[in-house]
């Protein structure tokens, strides 16, 4: 008998976060992530931990910033328009170097858009939606199990590098139920980690801030952030390549990648050799691995539920070595495996 439990993506990610030792959750309702906030509203207080339904996403992320500045393990979750509102504080957090986990269950945009699953926030997540020079670690899970595993680990990664970490899912991942194996429960992480604000008793006062006024100080700080991200790129970049022998390489992330996997199976039945290259960290993007994988293909197809955002990173990686084609499905909808299959057949001419 399997020890797996059947859970919706939103609830499974929330539970994984609690098991990672979460001390505080701050959020605001928005579809399609509502089960996340509801789950937290019950389970966090039941464990005597902090839960606040904030008055806005702006307030929620600033509560996260304040709580994260103490060194405690904290998070928020939202969906695209709400994440847009959070960008100011995320920029501050990156500048001030505080760890936190932020979950974006993406929906269709721009604007209010719709509530369907979308991948339209790729650029926002990987380029930094706030002001200034900064990058975050962005995981793009493809299944509920992977979302659970990546989120559980994301808190450690966030603490290790003192950086906000994004979990970029979409409405399909949040709403879908799959059987998952939940990780072991860790105790609540409430310490100051040696740098957090905990009261200046028997030590010098600590300041958590992004303001750097002295001449040359901000310049140096920005380059330090770049060096930190180089270390992150080296140690934390993750991807999946499904095969070693292929003519067509499909590059896709998250839900699109799942759909591509079904298409690849259909193509195999028809004698067409295709493989999937799936960035698991879309930031840092696995440029080198993709460049290597693309060399073995005759063509690369980028499939995304947007109008072509990761496409840019794929082109940068492939550097013109083979033709790169694109199929997109924006507007809160997903393409079918059959559509990908048809596109690849068309590419093969």
């Amino acid at each position: 008998m399997s020890k797996k439990v059947l859970m919706k993506g939103n609830e499974a990610i929330a539970e994984a976060s609690i098991r990672a030792g979460l001390a505080g959750y701050f959020g605001y309702p928005i579809t399609p992530q509502n089960e996340f906030t509801s789950y937290m509203s019950y389970h966090m207080p039941a464990k005597g931990r902090a839960f606040v339904q904030a008055e806005s996403e702006v307030a929620a992320i600033n509560m996260v910033y304040g709580a994260a500045a103490t060194g405690c393990r904290v998070m928020t979750s939202s969906s695209s328009p709400g994440i847009a509102l959070m960008q100011e504080a995320i920029s501050y957090m990156c500048g001030a170097e505080v760890p936190a986990v932020i979950v974006n269950i993406m929906r269709g945009g721009p604007g209010l858009g719709n509530i369907g699953p979308s991948q339209g926030d790729y650029n926002q997540a990987t380029r930094g939606g706030g002001n200034g020079d900064y990058k975050m670690i962005v995981y793009a899970p493809s299944t509920v199990q992977e979302a659970v595993d990546l989120t559980y680990n994301a808190f450690d990664v966030a603490d290790k590098y003192k950086i906000p970490v994004f979990i970029l899912g979409d409405g399909a991942l949040g709403q879908m139920a799959e059987p998952v194996l939940l990780p072991e429960e860790k105790p609540e992480m409430k310490g100051d980690q040696g740098w957090g604000l905990s009261g200046a008793k028997g030590r010098d006062p600590r300041a958590v801030m992004s303001l750097r006024l002295a001449e040359g100080e901000l310049r140096k700080h920005n380059w330090d952030l770049v060096s930190k991200f180089e270390k992150i790129t080296e140690a934390e970049t993750k991807y999946e390549l499904t095969d070693t022998d292929y003519d067509v390489l499909i590059a896709a992330f998250g839900t699109s990648a799942r759909v591509a996997k079904t298409a690849i199976r259909q193509l195999k039945e028809q004698g067409i050799k295709a493989a999937l290259f799936r960035p698991i960290t879309i930031c840092p993007f696995p440029y080198a691995a993709l460049a290597e994988a693309a060399k073995k293909a005759k063509k690369v197809l980028v499939a995304e539920m947007n109008t072509g955002q990761m496409l840019f990173d794929v082109k940068v990686a492939v550097e013109g070595a083979v033709p790169v084609e694109f199929m997109g499905c924006p507007g809160g909808e997903s393409f079918s495996p059959e559509e990908i299959t048809a596109k690849i057949k068309e590419m093969q001419g």
């Binding site: 008998m1 399609p32 139920a177 799959e178 059987p179």
Partner: peptide, 23 residues
């Protein structure tokens, strides 16, 4: 749909249950 998903999960099979949601 959940009923089927539970049986499948219990038997150690892979399963996805995906609802229409929202309005």
């Amino acid at each position: 749909g959940m009923m089927l998903a539970h049986i499948a999960s219990h038997k150690g099979l892979n399963v996805t249950w995906f609802p229409s949601y929202g309005a």
